[in-house]
Design a protein around this nucleic acid. Structure first.
Lengths: 347, 347
DNA sequence: ATGAAAGCGCTAACAA
DNA sequence: TTGTTAGCGCTTTCAT
């Protein structure tokens, strides 16, 4: 049995030209029933499968999508990756993964590598904002969509959840719950998600004529978040916050553990904690975290359709900023406003 | 600025032949300093980057590694994927992801797709055992390594941790802790990891002249694990297990939550729980789970070196079964044997 | 509907 | 060291 079967060999066996074989394996090409049958039989007998790379070279379309992702440690991303990959597979595309460091400017290098692969499109998940990306890809003629990040430049397609409103609903919820001293633990400040969540949150607080009493930066990392929590809560009981909004769940778990197991405080009696993302562990009873949901399924769905649109009709498709609604999921980690039960979402 | 720059254009500009350009970008090829410089300058001016796909076609080596993975829901895999991808990137390879369903026989289809991409090698993470895979890849001349799975057939390279010993140390630890009624919650029975962990565990229990008093199957899924826990612990206090070994951490978290929050029992006072994997949440204070560590870093390291060895010297390299040691990590979710403190590991 | 022929952009002998 | 020449396996005009 031959290790590599070419279309030429199939053609020979089927008694047709090589291009006939190519057509049989090209959806929408014009071949007669008879030829198709002969070819398929010969192909099956020989165990022929078209070489995707050769096809890519000749056609200029690789059916490969480059995915840049910084860290899988935040459990929002594994789910997104899995969904993205499955959805793309169903559409005949495959994902080539490029790991980038979270903060570094090495996005530029990575971008070069990606482009070398002649990918049909790129999904950038959780990268720093940089308008260079847009222009470089535009120059290379490769569509990009930003996943869970936004740029001020609106020439680039992005899919995010409504971070601003999400942050705002947290503020309103916490205020309605009668909290007096509300704090915030920020994510990495280079991220648009961080910026928007905080902006919405702050606006919500301020419009009630109040102020955030304490702020620390956790950089979206659990160790930094723990440290931030120690700083915020390791003070006099009178100065201590009675509520904290943490910029994502991943950090919120660390914060909750510091509050409960190091400080010996009770959640939500002494302190209310709210996160952002609604990753699976947020629903685990040990955390039962009130949080803002980023619906990975919908975000991925929009990402795919925007990207494939750009891939398939590069000329007519235009960049869009897609925003997915981000509902507050009320669980047990935060004191409730009067009259609100755990089942009802708050606004 | 041209959208696509070819080596031919660079050659023209540098005043050399096209193959000279190719050589400059081929490590280890023979080019003079002078030529190299001219070419590099021309390349830079034009913004030339070699087309990886064309190179792959011509050379027969794509520098793409196919990764088959079933589910990222178990947090052991995101970490493995991230490490694998980074390590391969450092070696000039990239990962093409293929999602397979956990149980289905669709590994076969996926394998076909992978092979179409002319990948240089394949990593199969968490797939069902199937000796067909080995032969199909062998026929295609593509090296494979099984990650976190083993086959009876030893013609295929695999990297696993020492699941048998791991299971055994759990048995010994639980026995030493004075537990009277020891139960087991199994993973998906098609997995070699499940089989080996249980075998080691059972042997450890039996050699002490004892028996596992209850067993349920959780299929490595948290909902099934919760259900299993309800069955096991929803009985008379006298019949209730006082210790349970759960085949992986992912399930163990669900089991702990059922035990604590549904049954109202205390861990470890009423029930000891031990898991397997040592994923990050196992160390979170809210779980503080005693578990057996699968060292992702080492497993990935061995996977990479075995795979690259097979890729680079297909003739001399031989299949190996690599086993990584799997130490028990003692935390607070299980009653300790007398004299053992949380810092000292048990045997 | 089909075959012939010309590439896609590169690597790898082979000569020189 | 360098240029010339064949391909790698496919898609895609262009005739027929």
């Amino acid at each position: 049995m031959p290790v590599k079967v070419t279309s030429r060999q199939v053609a020979e066996r089927a008694g047709v030209s090589q291009s006939a074989v190519s057509r049989v394996f090209t959806p929408g090409a014009s071949v007669s029933q008879k030829t198709a049958e002969k070819v398929r039989r010969a192909a099956k007998e020989l165990g022929y499968r078209p070489n995707v790379l050769a096809r890519a070279m000749a056609s200029g379309r690789s059916r490969i999508i480059g995915l840049v992702v910084a860290y899988l440690e935040n459990y929002f991303y594994p789910e997104a990756l899995e969904r993205l990959s499955r959805a793309l597979q169903e559409n005949g595309y495959h994902v080539l993964v490029f790991m980038a460091s979270q903060t570094a400017g090495n996005i530029e290098d990575v971008l070069g590598e990606i482009l070398d692969f002649q990918v049909d499109g790129i999904v950038m998940a959780s990268v720093a904002m940089s308008s260079d990306i847009a222009s470089r890809c535009q120059a290379a003629g490769v569509p990009v969509v930003l996943f869970n990040r936004k740029q001020d430049d609106d020439g680039i397609t992005s899919v995010t959840s409504d971070n601003y409103s999400g942050g705002r609903s947290v503020a309103e919820f916490l205020l309605a719950g009668g909290h007096e001293r509300i704090a915030y633990i920020a994510g990495w400040e280079g991220a648009s998600t961080q910026r928007d969540r905080e902006a919405g949150f702050n606006d919500g607080i301020r419009e009630a004529g109040r102020e955030v009493v304490a702020r620390a930066v956790g950089d979206f990392r659990s160790d930094s978040a723990s440290a931030a929590a120690r700083r915020l809560f390791g003070t006099d009981p009178e100065l201590r916050p009675d509520a904290v909004f943490v910029a994502n769940d991943h950090m919120a778990f660390a914060v909750m553990d510091v509050i409960r197991f190091e400080m010996g405080l009770s959640i939500p009696r002494d302190v209310s904690v709210v996160g952002f993302d609604d990753v699976p562990p947020a629903a685990w009873p040990a955390y039962d975290l009130t949080t803002v949901r980023q619906c990975a399924a919908r975000m991925v769905g929009e990402t795919i359709s925007a990207l494939l649109e750009l891939v398939r009709s590069p000329d007519t498709a235009t960049p869009r900023q897609i925003t997915i609604e981000a509902p507050l999921i009320v669980r047990g980690s935060a004191r409730l406003p009067d009259g609100v039960s755990r089942k009802g979402a708050s606004a």
